[in-house]
Design a protein around this nucleic acid. Sequence first.
DNA 1: TCAAAGATAGTCATCAATTACTATCTTTGC
DNA 2: GCAAAGATAGTAATTGATGACTATCTTTGA
Lengths: 202, 202
Amino acid sequence: MSSTSKYLSASERRAVTVEAVIALAAEQNPSQITTAAIAERMGLTQGAIFRHFPNKEAILEAVMGWVSERLISRIEKALAGEPSPLAALQGMFMAHAGFITEHPGIPHLLFEELQRAGETAPKRMVLTLVQRYEERIKRLLEKGKACGELDPELNSKAAATLFLGMIQGLVMQSLIVGDVNHIRRNASKVYAVYERGIRSAS
Amino acid sequence: MSSTSKYLSASERRAVTVEAVIALAAEQNPSQITTAAIAERMGLTQGAIFRHFPNKEAILEAVMGWVSERLISRIEKALAGEPSPLAALQGMFMAHAGFITEHPGIPHLLFEELQRAGETAPKRMVLTLVQRYEERIKRLLEKGKACGELDPELNSKAAATLFLGMIQGLVMQSLIVGDVNHIRRNASKVYAVYERGIRSAS
DNA sequence: TCAAAGATAGTCATCAATTACTATCTTTGC
DNA sequence: GCAAAGATAGTAATTGATGACTATCTTTGA
């Protein structure tokens, strides 16, 4: 329990490391996150990190695993309660907005990883995460069309792209304003415009 | 004209340098763009770059200047011909999509700069560019509401955020697919969903 | 011919990774 | 029960690679 004890078990230390990276990503460009900075954040020396990870890429891999797991479970939980596809979609969006307000570094990490050249393990993990996420949105949209809630003419793929873009737009906006809470405060307003674009003519 | 001459005038060399950076940004993470890589792309030695720029930040500054100028002028040109606010907005979007399809590295550069910690000159340039751009969209949206083309209930700020997010979404999509032309191919489909979200009920 | 552009060969700082050593837990044999 | 032995976590110093930047020499073209 004594999370302030200097000596942590390997698995605890790995978990703390992942959290340190996510916290740092909220404050600075992910490419500027050095192993020394991660160690300092944990009150550890730089070399100690390599007792728990073979190399820096493995840290990133662990971070992406953490993000995938948490984000997916949070989204699914938000979806579970909602009765209609349209309500589920909104719940999904608000859950996502809440998640990145709590962990504003995450979208930066994902985007950074996506634009990396070459094929790294963490990049592949981001790719599958985003693709799975997109599939989930598309399925929901198709269901919405089927039950008459959404415009039958709607292009689901385009609408899914816009859904993800909506989040990116809010993140960018929060970077400009310099306040992460901007995301949660404005999420529903932006979503309202989106919903108007996809729902059936009534 | 002899663009293959090794010896260029200072201003020509600066222009070529900016283009080299933008080309490199399309292939790799902007933070991985080294002065050595820029030099190699131009067929120059690394040290020679510092004959024309006092430091690396100055190169980034020049790049941001180039982007601001070109993007703004291209957008304004697209706007000029269009009669109605709604048509102007669409023209603006398609012009932007075309611009980043030609220079796919640019959104990466801008986003990278936005999430940089601290206050650098290039970051300030990106901030003012995005803010000016956003203002332009909002004005157009207000005009559209005034002339009855757009939903009078529309939240212009939220719609502007979504407009910018739409571009980010397309960029992300193109990173996933691994093909920049994806942006131009899908721009109009995504825009159709957006337009439905903002236009008047008619 | 000479000033501007480029080449060459460095310096210095930073960063990921390693290594030899130390501190602290945990297990085992009596 | 409890000390010795081993396992595990962390320290501190170092290394090799890399990157921004600089000093000095060489070439070019007007």
